[in-house]
Amino acid sequence: MSRPSRSARRLVGVAAVAAFALSGCGSSVVGVREAPSQTTTTAPITADSAQQIASRVLGKAQEARDAKGDAADTLRKEALTGTALAVATAAAKVEPADSSTATAPVERTEQPKVLAISRGTAWPRVILAQTTEPDGRLVLNLLTSPDAATPFRLSSSATMQSGASVAALDAVTAGSPLVAEDTKDPVAPAELLKAYAGALAYPKPTATKAVDTTDPFSTAVKANAAAQAKSFGKLATLTQVHTPQPDPVAIRLKDGGLLVFGLLSRTDAIKLASGGKSLTPSAEFQKLVKKKTLTKDAELRTYETVVLTVPPKGEASVVAVDQTLYSAKGA
């Protein structure tokens, strides 16, 4: 069999090169591809962005705390929201100069450390950041953004108790799931706070297996109430009620447990016994109620910001807490 002529082979060769060149115009060769789809199961913002946001928000919160008068009010509204705003505003109304019973919401000595970012593209979004107070105590700060147009603000802040620790959270880039209020796994955050509040009540606490109340704060609250009641003797009676405030925030831990930020309102009600006798309270108490003696009753209201960790199985424990007096009156 004879072969095609040389000119024919040359023409076929050129045609093949041309065809290859044309096919080379395909998307892969020219570097054009389909746009990738968005991943919605990770943190919605980068770790760097979260760090910048935390620094900005906590810096503003510090400014608000240091400011006086109307300027302080404006700054508070810019930097704080939710629980943190309620606590700071209430504290400012009672006695701005007296910080003996109010723990500073934020006292930074170094850059905040971002511990977690809420997972997913939905709102609200939260950032959990840790700061260090000048005395070395660690503070857990919860920053919240309710919607796309509203920047993050500090919504809750509490100082960690000595020896307390938080179980591992998911990586910052992966994000940590926010837990719905009505979740039952391992416990409903609202139910947990209700159980904890009941366990702290005085004189009739409600026993609970949901929360361990042997931590320093819970122990001190119960001991102080008992000591105060004892000091009143037969002159007065003390009742202490802790009321959970709505909308706790819960973040899922890596092991399946929860980190719950909640707010309790504690009411200390002192009622003098009938018989015409008066009670001379301590100097601190006199300063708060602006009276030297009590003849009828007195009521103190205090916000208790609490952070609890809930393991997948077993009792929750209080890891961080702050309390701020926001109302004091007596007659």
């Binding site: 069999m1 004879s2 072969r3 095609p4 002529s5 000119s7 024919a8 023409l11 076929v12 045609a15």
Partner: peptide, 15 residues
Amino acid sequence: SDLAKRASVLSRRIL
């Protein structure tokens, strides 16, 4: 062969 001849003619006329 006939086939080769035809291919050669075709390539020379069409290409």
